[in-house]
Design a protein around this nucleic acid. Structure first.
Length: 607
RNA sequence: GGAUCGGUAGCUCAAUGGCAGAGCAAGGAGCUCAUAACUCCUGGGUUACAGGUUCGAGUCCUGUCCGAUCCA
C-alpha cells in the first residue's frame, strides 16, 4: 500500500439468495467488477470489493413457500451456491457475506435511527387488506380478487393477469387470502415509516448536475431525466411482514424493515464486517472526511439504476445531514461500527450499469425455462473461457444476445486461435529448442524494438480502458496486441532461421517470450486462471493473484458463510517487467481446451 | 401515460458533426513453430423509416416503427 495508492471501493449488486444465478446476471453485474478490481489491484491501488446475498424480501419468502422450508434455509442453500460459483470463476470479493447477520442488522438500525433523527423519515397511516383468520396484513401478492377493470376473477395483487391493467389492491372485489384461503378479508389501517425522497430531489439533482462527465451517458441521462421531473416521493421503508430486520423502536414489533432499504446498505455494512474480520479500517474507504478522494464504483444491472443513482445516494445524503442531533450509537453496535455514529459517508463515484445479456431472443427466465445456470456451466467449461466470452459479449451499451454457436466461435476462433495458440507456439518452440530455458538474446534490430514498443504501449492504452470500465474495448485492445506478436513471428520465422541464422532466431524467440510475458499481465484481469498458469510455464514461482477462501462466521443471529480474498500473496504488478534470460521454463501445455462444436451444440441446456 | 437507452456488414460491436471501421464468418494466396492454428489480400453498407438544420449528419432537431429498463 503505497502513499499514491488510491482507495477504490468496488460495490457489487446484492443478488437475492433464491436460486441459481444465470450467466446473464454474471455478465451484467458480477464478472465486470472482478475484472475491474483485479486491474486496480495490479495498478497498485487499495481495492475493497464487497457484496453479499440479499436475504430478505418476497423473492426469498416465495421460494421458501415453494420449497416448503424456512426462509433462513433458502438463504443458506442459495447463498452457498453463489459462493461456490464465485470460487469456480474466482471472483475476488474481499468480502462476500449476506444481509441476515448481526452486523448488517446493527448498521441498518443505526442508519434508520439517524434518518429518523434527521427527519428524513416520516410515518403515514395506510389502508391494507387484513386476513383475520391468519391474523396478518396481506402483501399485494397474497391477495386475489376480481379485477376492477375487466372483471377477471383471478386477478392478483396490483396487476391483472388477464387485462394487464395496474390498480391499487384495495380496488379488488371478492377478495380472498392466498395465505389462509379465507374470503372474509377486512381493510384495516396500518402505520408505516417512509423515506422522504421528495425532500432529497433537489439535493440529488444538484449532485448529478456536476462532476459526472465520466458516467455512462445512459445512466446519467436516465437519472437526470427522472430527477428533473421533481416527482420523487416518499417510499415505504416498513411492511407488515415477519421476515426482515426489526424496527429499532418500541411498538412496532409486528412490522419489519422492507428489503430495499436494508439491501443497499450492504455496501456499507459489508465494509464494516470486512474490517471486523481483517482488522482493516472501513473508514479508509467510507468516511468522507478521512477519505474524501475514495472512489466508489457500483456494478449493477440497468434495472437497478434508480436505486443506485437516486435512492441510495439520497439515503447517504439524509444520513450525512447535520440538521438533526447526533444520537449516541445504538447499544448493540460493535466496536468496529462505533464510528458510524459520527461519520459522514462518501457518495458514489461511478455507477457503470450494464444492460442485459439475453438468450433465445428473450431475457433469461426461470419460468420460461430458458436459463443457462452459472454453477451448471462452470462444471462443463473452463472458467476463463466463460470470462472471455462473457466479456466479449458484455452488454455494456445495449442488450446483447448469447448463443451457443457464438460461444464456440469466440472460444475456438478468438481465445484459442489468437492468444492460446500464440502462447503454445512460442512456449513449445522455446522449450524444445532452447533446453527449457529463456534464451539469451542478441542485439535487437528495429523489428524487435518495434514489436516490444507496441506491446509495452499496452500498459498505457489497455490501462486506460480498464480504468474507464470499458472492458470489452480492453479485451479488443489486448487481442490486437496478441495478433501483433503473431505477425512478428510470421515475419521473423525463427523456425526457419534457426537453421541459417541461429542468433536472429534466438533473439526473436526471446522477444516473443517477453511480449507474451507482458500480454499475460494485460490479459490477467479477464483471464486470471490461464495467466496464472502461463506465469508458471514462464518459470515464475510467485503467484500473480492472491487466494480466495471461505469461513463460517458465528454471531448473535447464527452462522453465516463468507467468501474472502487474501491479496497478500499476490505479485502481479501492472508494469513492463523484464523477463530474465536463463530463467527455467516449465513444460508447457495448451492453456485452453478447444471446443467440439457438435458436442457443445448437441447439449440440452433448457433444463 | 412519463423519463431514458438502443436499432450501423451474415454475426458481435466501433466511429469529440468531417473519407462508415474492426473481430468473427465467407472467398483467395502464403507459411508449417503452433490446438487444421498463424500471416496477407478480397468481397461485403440506402447507418430502422420519413422529414428538417448544416458547407458537411450514423452523430443534432421533429415525427413514426421496433426492442429494452425504470416510474406512474
Amino acid at each position: 500500500m503505497s502513499d499514491q495508492a488510491e482507495k477504490i471501493l468496488v460495490c457489487v449488486a446484492w443478488p437475492y439468495a433464491n436460486g441459481e444465478k444465470h450467466i446473464g446476471q454474471i455478465a451484467g453485474a458480477y464478472l465486470p467488477p472482478d475484472i475491474f478490481a483485479r486491474y486496480q489491484r495490479m495498478a497498485g491501488n487499495d481495492v475493497l470489493m464487497v457484496s453479499g446475498s440479499d436475504t430478505h424480501g418476497t423473492p426469498i419468502t416465495l421460494q421458501a413457500e415453494q420449497e416448503g422450508i424456512e426462509p433462513a434455509a433458502v438463504v443458506d442453500k442459495y447463498h452457498e451456491m453463489f459462493v461456490e460459483g464465485c470460487l469456480a470463476m474466482a471472483l475476488t470479493f474481499d468480502l462476500y457475506t449476506h444481509t441476515d447477520t448481526q452486523n448488517h442488522w446493527d448498521v441498518t438500525q443505526q442508519v434508520f435511527q439517524r434518518h429518523l433523527a434527521n427527519e428524513f423519515i416520516y410515518t403515514e397511516v395506510q389502508k391494507q387488506w387484513f386476513d383475520p383468520e391468519a391474523g396478518r396484513f396481506l402483501a399485494d401478492r397474497y391477495v386475489e380478487g376480481t379485477c376492477p377493470f375487466c372483471g377477471y376473477a383471478g386477478a392478483r395483487g396490483d396487476q391483472c393477469d388477464e387485462c394487464g391493467r395496474l390498480y391499487d389492491a384495495l380496488e379488488l372485489t371478492d377478495t380472498r387470502s392466498k395465505l389462509s384461503g379465507s374470503n372474509e378479508l377486512e381493510v384495516r389501517e396500518t402505520e408505516h415509516f417512509f423515506l422522504d425522497l421528495g425532500a432529497l430531489n433537489e439535493p440529488l439533482l444538484a449532485w448529478v448536475g456536476s462532476g459526472k462527465e465520466h458516467w455512462r451517458s445512459n445512466v446519467l441521462n436516465f437519472t437526470q431525466g427522472q430527477l428533473n421531473l421533481k416527482e420523487l416521493r416518499g417510499r415505504a421503508i416498513t411492511r407488515d411482514i415477519d421476515w426482515g430486520i426489526d424496527i429499532p423502536l418500541e411498538g412496532y414489533e409486528d412490522k419489519r424493515i422492507y428489503v430495499w432499504y436494508d439491501a443497499v446498505q450492504g455496501y456499507l455494512s459489508a465494509a464494516i464486517e470486512w474490517a471486523d474480520l481483517s482488522g482493516g479500517e472501513w473508514q479508509a474507504w467510507w468516511d468522507r472526511d478521512l477519505a474524501p478522494d475514495a472512489r466508489h464504483y457500483y456494478f449493477i444491472g440497468k434495472d437497478n439504476i434508480p436505486f443506485h443513482t437516486q435512492i441510495w445516494p439520497g439515503m447517504i445524503m439524509a444520513y450525512n445531514d447535520d440538521s438533526g442531533e447526533r444520537e449516541p450509537p445504538l447499544a448493540g453496535l460493535s466496536e468496529t461500527a462505533q464510528g458510524l455514529a459520527t461519520a459522514g459517508l462518501n457518495l458514489p463515484y461511478d455507477v457503470p450499469a450494464n444492460e442485459y445479456l439475453n438468450f433465445g431472443g428473450a431475457q433469461f427466465s426461470t419460468s420460461r425455462g430458458n436459463v443457462i445456470g452459472w454453477n451448471t456451466v462452470l462444471e462443463a467449461y473452463q472458467p476463463d473461457a466463460w470470462r472471455y466470452v462473457l466479456t466479449a459479449m458484455s452488454p455494456e451499451s445495449a442488450d446483447s444476445e448469447f448463443t451457443w454457436p457464438d460461444f464456440v466461435e469466440l472460444v475456438n476462433n478468438e481465445l484459442v486461435a489468437n492468444w492460446g495458440n500464440l502462447v503454445n507456439r512460442v512456449l513449445g518452440f522455446a522449450y524444445r529448442r532452447f533446453d527449457g530455458a529463456v534464451p539469451q538474446p542478441g542485439p535487437f534490430d528495429p523489428a524487435d524494438e518495434a514489436v516490444l514498443a507496441d506491446i509495452r504501449a499496452g500498459f498505457e492504452s489497455v490501462a486506460a480502458l480498464y480504468e474507464a470500465v470499458k472492458l470489452k474495448a480492453a479485451l479488443h485492445e489486448v487481442r490486437r496486441l496478441s495478433q501483433r506478436v503473431n505477425q512478428y513471428l510470421n515475419e521473423k520465422e525463427p523456425w526457419r532461421t534457426i537453421k541459417t541464422e541461429p542468433g536472429a532466431a534466438t533473439t526473436a524467440v526471446y522477444v516473443a517470450l517477453q511480449a507474451i510475458d507482458w500480454l499475460k499481465l494485460m490479459w490477467a484481469p479477464i483471464l486470471p486462471h490461464s495467466s496464472e498458469q502461463l506465469h508458471i510455464y514462464l518459470g515464475y514461482t510467485q503467484s500473480l493473484f492472491g487466494r480466495l477462501n471461505t469461513t463460517s462466521i458465528e454471531d448473535a443471529r447464527g452462522e453465516h458463510l463468507v467468501l474472502r480474498y487474501d491479496h497478500e500473496s499476490a505479485s502481479g504488478v501492472w508494469q513492463a517487467s523484464s523477463l530474465p534470460a536463463g530463467q527455467l521454463l516449465q513444460k508447457p501445455a495448451p492453456l485452453f481446451a478447444k471446443l467440439d462444436p457438435a458436442e457443445v451444440l448437441g447439449e440440452e441446456w433448457d433444463e
